[in-house]
């Protein structure tokens, strides 16, 4: 089966600062792919470039059989979803309004309602709080809204930037349990994490990012046997 996302020689950065040197990256039709590595080496930059928030300096990106269009809105409409770092919720809107914004580019309202039920089933807490403004939520609940809003797009690929950032260990476990369930439904997910131990249980493919390029790539089994490399990079 063809890859869902295939990237060759991607170079990108902020203004004049080159961050991604040359990234080759591909994602299959399902399962969780994890991008790990220390902070400040281009993990978020990669996701933002793929999502279209940052311009591509050079390189090729093919998604679902066609080159990616220009601009974040068009890419979102093609089914490429990014759950950005720090949630970036619409703070003045309620939980339900936030979730419905996730389905902005969908027109079949019946199917959207169906997805909303799925999201509420996955995160029952959000159903309880659906009329509450998102700024009054706890950190864990906000993360759930962020991920739920990503799910509402019903896209083909969901990229999540540091889902564990700033959360208590117990909440992180809940979030990853949910991600595992989403992936079990046959959806493709890309997760960025600083520390691989959190994603090790659910992800099936790993890329270690260092200095704007992948320094190591492998499966879960390979990650276990090459733990020395990982330790060197992450200082764990």
């Amino acid at each position: 089966m063809a890859e869902l996302l295939s990237i060759k020689g991607l170079v990108s950065g902020y203004r004049h600062l080159k961050v991604l040197r040359s990234v080759d990256f591909s994602v299959g039709q399902s399962g969780i792919t994890a991008i790990i590595g220390p902070n400040g080496h281009g993990k978020s930059t990669l996701l933002k470039t793929i999502a279209g928030l940052l311009p591509t300096w050079s390189g090729e990106m093919v998604f679902d059989g066609a080159p990616l269009p220009k601009g974040a809105p068009e890419r979102a409409r093609r089914g490429l979803t990014l759950v950005p770092q720090g949630d970036q919720l619409f703070t003045g809107m309620t939980v339900e309004e936030n979730l419905m914004m996730g389905a902005f580019s969908r027109s079949d309202q019946r199917a959207v309602r169906g997805t909303l039920d799925t999201v509420f089933a996955l995160f029952p807490r959000l159903h309880e709080r659906r009329t509450q403004r998102s700024e009054s939520l706890s950190g864990g609940e906000r993360r759930m809204v962020g991920i739920g809003r990503g799910l509402m797009a019903d896209g083909k690929l969901m990229m999540i930037d540091e889902p564990s950032l700033g959360l208590a260990p117990l909440i992180i476990e809940q979030i990853y349990e949910a991600l595992g369930q989403i992936a079990a439904d046959g959806r493709a997910i890309v997760v960025v994490e600083e520390n691989p131990s959190r994603v090790a249980k659910v992800a099936d493919r790993f890329h270690l990012m260092d200095g704007g390029a992948f320094a190591w790539s492998g499966t879960t089994a390979e990650l276990e046997t090459s733990s020395e490399i990982i330790k060197t990079y992450l200082g764990a």
């Binding site: 999502a51 279209g52 928030l53 601009g71 974040a72 809105p73 979102a76 409409r77 979803t81 990014l82 950005p84 970036q88 919720l89 619409f90 703070t91 003045g92 809107m93 914004m101 996730g102 902005f104 580019s105 809003r149 797009a153």
Partner: peptide, 10 residues
């Protein structure tokens, strides 16, 4: 409320 997030919603 959040321009980048809105763009990500399409």
């Amino acid at each position: 409320m959040n321009r980048e997030a809105a763009m990500l919603m399409g």
